[in-house]
């Protein structure tokens, strides 16, 4: 386990050098995107339409922040991760189509995303769910918002981050997933738990 500070855009080498369990802090642009962004972006790609931001070598954060307008400027109030598994069916294609190098979220993602991370050179960073005020401290500036019509939680917020973290590499490019490891341990514990419950 090592601790690293990385700057976005991320290169394929940057992410392939990471191992599950490593701690990372990020600087640079991070885009928020959850259910609706994934659905819309993939629909746009299918229809050959442009999307408003370029995810290539970039970072997508499964996050629907609370934003507040201070004069003309948006300010990040709270910005924790949302449950990544809702994007399980969309993320592999999203990684392939848009060349995203890192996904930030919580709760982990399923096998097809682990495979896509391995194949296309992408990592999944886990950040503590609900720690939204602390995480917002890592957002230095809000550079803009796209697809605002999807609503505040579902829009693409363009965040300039500084020392965003700690992020734990939950899925690396070698097929490792901390969440899959925990799943195996949990499965092994089930008989003991059943016995304790008398079932």
């Amino acid at each position: 386990m090592s601790e690293k500070r990385l700057t976005v855009p991320l290169s394929e080498d940057d992410v392939r050098a990471l191992d599950a369990g490593d701690i990372v802090y990020l600087d640079g642009i991070v885009y928020t995107g959850r259910d609706e962004v994934h659905i819309h972006a993939l629909e746009h790609a299918k229809e050959g339409k442009e999307i408003p931001v370029d995810f290539k070598d970039g970072v997508i954060f499964h996050c629907g922040p609370i934003m507040k307008k201070d004069g003309d400027k948006w300010v990040t109030v709270a910005a924790g991760p949302t449950t990544s598994s809702r994007m399980n069916s969309l993320e592999p294609e999203f990684i392939e189509k848009f060349g995203v190098r890192a996904v930030i979220g919580k709760g982990g993602m399923s096998a097809p995303t682990i495979e896509a991370c391995q194949k296309f050179g992408c990592v999944y960073f886990a950040i503590t769910g609900g720690a939204a005020v602390s995480i917002a401290k890592g957002v230095e500036d809000v550079l803009g918002v796209e697809w605002f019509e999807l609503g505040m939680p579902e829009a693409i917020w363009i965040l300039k981050t500084k020392n965003l973290g700690p992020l734990i590499v939950g899925i690396d490019t070698k097929g490792n997933s901390l969440f899959a490891d925990v799943d195996k341990e949990v499965e092994a514990n089930v008989p003991k738990v059943r016995e304790k419950l008398g079932i």
């Binding site: 109030v77 709270a78 609900g130 939204a132 005020v133 700690p166 734990i168």
Partner: peptide
Amino acid sequence: MQLKAILDNIDLAVKTGTPMCQDT
């Protein structure tokens, strides 16, 4: 580390009068 992040965040939310989680 996870629980520390949660507890620190709870303190910070009270100090700053900010919602502790973005999902209110």
